[in-house]
Protein backbone atom coordinates (compact mmCIF):
# COMPACT_ATOMS: atom_id res chain seq x y z
CA UNK A 1 0.00 0.00 0.00
CA UNK A 2 1.75 3.16 -1.11
CA UNK A 3 -0.45 6.13 -0.32
CA UNK A 4 2.61 8.38 -0.39
CA UNK A 5 2.31 11.48 -2.51
CA UNK A 6 5.96 12.01 -3.18
CA UNK A 7 8.53 14.17 -1.54
CA UNK A 8 8.15 16.65 1.29
CA UNK A 9 10.01 19.79 0.28
CA UNK A 10 10.74 22.87 2.35
CA UNK A 11 11.94 25.74 0.19
CA UNK A 12 13.57 28.30 2.43
CA UNK A 13 11.31 27.96 5.47
CA UNK A 14 12.12 30.23 8.37
CA UNK A 15 10.54 30.43 11.83
CA UNK A 16 10.53 33.58 13.92
CA UNK A 17 9.71 34.36 17.55
CA UNK A 18 8.60 38.01 17.65
CA UNK A 19 11.21 39.38 15.22
CA UNK A 20 14.05 37.00 15.99
CA UNK A 21 14.86 34.21 13.55
CA UNK A 22 14.75 30.81 15.24
CA UNK A 23 15.15 28.77 12.09
CA UNK A 24 16.94 30.94 9.52
CA UNK A 25 16.04 29.58 6.09
CA UNK A 26 15.77 25.88 5.80
CA UNK A 27 15.92 24.02 2.50
CA UNK A 28 15.09 20.37 2.86
CA UNK A 29 13.84 17.62 0.61
CA UNK A 30 12.70 14.33 2.09
CA UNK A 31 12.09 11.45 -0.32
CA UNK A 32 9.12 9.08 0.06
CA UNK A 33 9.91 6.57 2.79
CA UNK A 34 12.92 8.51 3.98
CA UNK A 35 13.22 9.58 7.64
CA UNK A 36 15.10 12.83 8.10
CA UNK A 37 16.10 13.90 11.60
CA UNK A 38 16.09 17.40 13.02
CA UNK A 39 18.27 17.94 16.07
CA UNK A 40 19.07 20.95 18.18
CA UNK A 41 18.89 22.38 21.69
CA UNK A 42 15.51 23.07 23.31
CA UNK A 43 13.90 26.31 22.24
CA UNK A 44 15.65 26.29 18.87
CA UNK A 45 12.36 26.12 17.01
CA UNK A 46 12.15 22.41 16.13
CA UNK A 47 8.63 21.89 17.39
CA UNK A 48 7.54 25.24 15.98
CA UNK A 49 8.77 24.13 12.57
CA UNK A 50 6.62 21.00 12.82
CA UNK A 51 3.64 23.10 13.90
CA UNK A 52 4.17 25.25 10.82
CA UNK A 53 4.33 22.21 8.57
CA UNK A 54 0.99 20.93 9.81
CA UNK A 55 -0.55 24.39 9.72
CA UNK A 56 -0.96 25.02 13.43
CA UNK A 57 1.69 27.61 14.27
CA UNK A 58 0.33 30.21 16.67
CA UNK A 59 1.50 33.67 17.75
CA UNK A 60 3.88 34.98 18.98
CA UNK A 61 5.63 32.53 16.64
CA UNK A 62 5.45 33.06 12.92
CA UNK A 63 6.97 31.41 9.88
CA UNK A 64 7.29 31.81 6.15
CA UNK A 65 8.48 29.87 3.12
CA UNK A 66 6.64 27.43 0.89
CA UNK A 67 6.08 23.77 1.76
CA UNK A 68 5.47 21.24 -1.02
CA UNK A 69 4.02 17.74 -0.83
CA UNK A 70 4.88 16.23 -4.19
CA UNK A 71 3.91 18.89 -6.70
CA UNK A 72 1.31 20.43 -4.40
CA UNK A 73 1.99 23.65 -2.49
CA UNK A 74 0.30 23.08 0.87
CA UNK A 75 1.50 26.26 2.57
CA UNK A 76 -1.89 27.95 2.47
CA UNK A 77 -4.04 24.89 3.13
CA UNK A 78 -5.98 24.48 6.38
CA UNK A 79 -4.48 21.87 8.75
CA UNK A 80 -7.28 19.41 8.06
CA UNK A 81 -6.76 19.65 4.30
CA UNK A 82 -3.00 19.10 4.33
CA UNK A 83 -3.03 15.44 5.29
CA UNK A 84 0.16 15.78 7.28
CA UNK A 85 0.18 13.34 10.18
CA UNK A 86 1.88 14.23 13.46
CA UNK A 87 2.84 12.25 16.56
CA UNK A 88 3.71 14.01 19.78
CA UNK A 89 5.67 13.09 22.89
CA UNK A 90 2.31 12.41 24.55
CA UNK A 91 0.05 10.02 22.70
CA UNK A 92 -2.93 12.43 23.02
CA UNK A 93 -5.48 9.66 22.58
CA UNK A 94 -8.87 11.26 23.17
CA UNK A 95 -9.73 10.15 26.71
CA UNK A 96 -13.49 10.23 26.18
CA UNK A 97 -13.42 7.77 23.26
CA UNK A 98 -12.68 4.05 23.20
CA UNK A 99 -9.61 2.80 21.37
CA UNK A 100 -11.82 1.85 18.42
CA UNK A 101 -13.55 5.24 18.33
CA UNK A 102 -10.19 6.99 18.50
CA UNK A 103 -9.16 5.06 15.39
CA UNK A 104 -12.51 5.54 13.63
CA UNK A 105 -12.18 9.27 14.28
CA UNK A 106 -9.23 9.31 11.90
CA UNK A 107 -10.75 7.25 9.08
CA UNK A 108 -11.59 9.57 6.14
CA UNK A 109 -15.29 10.42 5.80
CA UNK A 110 -15.45 8.77 2.35
CA UNK A 111 -15.37 5.42 4.17
CA UNK A 112 -18.87 4.86 5.49
CA UNK A 113 -20.80 2.80 8.00
CA UNK A 114 -19.43 -0.49 9.31
CA UNK A 115 -16.44 -0.28 7.06
CA UNK A 116 -14.98 2.35 9.42
CA UNK A 117 -14.97 0.04 12.43
CA UNK A 118 -13.68 -2.76 10.19
CA UNK A 119 -10.69 -0.64 9.17
CA UNK A 120 -10.00 0.18 12.80
CA UNK A 121 -10.16 -3.49 13.79
CA UNK A 122 -7.88 -4.49 10.93
CA UNK A 123 -5.34 -1.88 11.92
CA UNK A 124 -5.38 -3.15 15.52
CA UNK A 125 -4.93 -6.72 14.36
CA UNK A 126 -1.98 -5.75 12.24
CA UNK A 127 -0.32 -4.13 15.26
CA UNK A 128 -0.98 -7.21 17.42
CA UNK A 129 -3.64 -5.35 19.42
CA UNK A 130 -6.55 -7.65 18.56
CA UNK A 131 -9.60 -7.17 20.74
CA UNK A 132 -8.61 -3.70 21.90
CA UNK A 133 -11.51 -2.07 20.00
CA UNK A 134 -13.70 -1.40 23.04
CA UNK A 135 -10.90 -0.70 25.49
CA UNK A 136 -10.53 2.52 27.46
CA UNK A 137 -7.27 4.15 26.29
CA UNK A 138 -6.43 5.01 29.91
CA UNK A 139 -6.06 1.29 30.69
CA UNK A 140 -3.38 0.67 28.06
CA UNK A 141 0.36 0.49 28.70
CA UNK A 142 2.63 3.22 27.40
CA UNK A 143 3.82 1.12 24.48
CA UNK A 144 0.28 0.12 23.54
CA UNK A 145 -0.91 3.71 23.65
CA UNK A 146 2.00 4.80 21.45
CA UNK A 147 1.08 2.11 18.93
CA UNK A 148 -2.60 3.13 18.92
CA UNK A 149 -1.56 6.76 18.39
CA UNK A 150 0.54 5.67 15.39
CA UNK A 151 -2.34 3.62 13.96
CA UNK A 152 -4.68 6.56 14.38
CA UNK A 153 -2.32 8.87 12.51
CA UNK A 154 -1.88 6.36 9.68
CA UNK A 155 -5.63 5.69 9.32
CA UNK A 156 -6.10 9.34 8.34
CA UNK A 157 -4.06 8.44 5.22
CA UNK A 158 -1.40 11.11 5.61
CA UNK A 159 0.94 12.07 2.77
CA UNK A 160 3.77 12.89 5.16
CA UNK A 161 4.62 12.10 8.78
CA UNK A 162 5.98 14.45 11.44
CA UNK A 163 7.38 13.02 14.67
CA UNK A 164 7.77 15.40 17.62
CA UNK A 165 9.96 13.33 19.99
CA UNK A 166 7.31 10.63 20.09
CA UNK A 167 9.58 8.04 21.73
CA UNK A 168 10.98 10.10 24.58
CA UNK A 169 8.37 8.95 27.11
CA UNK A 170 9.07 5.29 26.39
CA UNK A 171 11.98 3.32 27.75
CA UNK A 172 14.17 0.35 26.97
CA UNK A 173 12.87 -2.37 24.68
CA UNK A 174 9.45 -0.71 24.24
CA UNK A 175 11.17 2.34 22.90
CA UNK A 176 13.14 0.55 20.19
CA UNK A 177 10.15 -1.61 19.28
CA UNK A 178 7.76 1.32 18.83
CA UNK A 179 10.46 3.22 16.97
CA UNK A 180 11.00 0.31 14.63
CA UNK A 181 7.27 0.02 14.02
CA UNK A 182 6.89 3.71 13.20
CA UNK A 183 9.81 3.74 10.77
CA UNK A 184 8.69 0.51 9.16
CA UNK A 185 5.20 1.89 8.48
CA UNK A 186 6.64 5.14 7.15
CA UNK A 187 8.88 3.25 4.73
CA UNK A 188 6.26 0.75 3.68
CA UNK A 189 3.79 3.52 2.84
CA UNK A 190 6.38 5.71 1.22
CA UNK A 191 5.78 8.58 3.63
CA UNK A 192 8.38 11.33 3.75
CA UNK A 193 9.04 11.60 7.50
CA UNK A 194 10.60 14.30 9.62
CA UNK A 195 11.74 13.31 13.12
CA UNK A 196 12.55 15.80 15.84
CA UNK A 197 14.64 14.40 18.66
CA UNK A 198 17.31 14.99 21.29
CA UNK A 199 18.39 11.40 21.17
CA UNK A 200 21.34 10.35 19.01
CA UNK A 201 20.14 6.74 19.03
CA UNK A 202 16.79 7.80 17.53
CA UNK A 203 18.60 9.74 14.83
CA UNK A 204 20.81 6.79 14.02
CA UNK A 205 17.85 4.41 13.85
CA UNK A 206 16.11 6.76 11.46
CA UNK A 207 18.89 6.19 8.97
CA UNK A 208 18.23 9.35 6.99
CA UNK A 209 19.92 12.74 6.74
CA UNK A 210 20.46 14.64 9.99
CA UNK A 211 19.94 18.39 10.15
CA UNK A 212 21.28 20.27 13.15
CA UNK A 213 19.62 23.55 14.07
CA UNK A 214 21.75 26.03 15.96
CA UNK A 215 20.29 27.44 19.17
CA UNK A 216 19.83 31.17 19.09
CA UNK A 217 22.28 31.52 21.97
CA UNK A 218 25.00 30.41 19.57
CA UNK A 219 24.27 33.42 17.40
CA UNK A 220 22.00 32.18 14.65
Amino acid sequence: MTAGAGTLRLAGVSVRLHDRDLVPSLDLTIAPGEVATLMGPSGCGKSSLLAYLCGALSPPLSASGPVFLGECDVTRLAPEDRRVGILFQDDLLFPHLSVGDNLAFAVPPSVRGRQRARLAAAALAEAELDGFLKRDPATLSGGQRARVALLRTLLAEPRALLLDEPFSRLDGPTRSRVRGLVFEHARRRGLPTLLVTHDAEDAEAAGGPIIRLPGWENGA
Binding site: A51, C54, G55, A56, A78, P79, E80, R82, R83, V84, G85, I86, F88, D90, L92, F94, F105, A106, P108, P109, R152, T153, A156, P158
Partner: peptide, 16 residues
Amino acid sequence: LDERYQRTAGCLGASP
Protein backbone atom coordinates in the same frame (compact mmCIF):
# COMPACT_ATOMS: atom_id res chain seq x y z
CA LEU B 1 -7.24 21.75 28.16
CA ASP B 2 -4.13 20.77 26.18
CA GLU B 3 -4.59 22.53 22.85
CA ARG B 4 -2.67 19.73 21.08
CA TYR B 5 -5.81 17.58 21.25
CA GLN B 6 -7.49 19.97 18.85
CA ARG B 7 -4.36 20.19 16.74
CA THR B 8 -4.17 16.40 16.59
CA ALA B 9 -7.80 16.24 15.48
CA GLY B 10 -7.01 18.77 12.75
CA CYS B 11 -4.02 16.78 11.53
CA LEU B 12 -6.26 13.70 11.41
CA GLY B 13 -8.44 15.56 8.91
CA ALA B 14 -11.12 16.95 11.21
CA SER B 15 -12.45 20.41 10.45
CA PRO B 16 -12.28 22.95 13.31
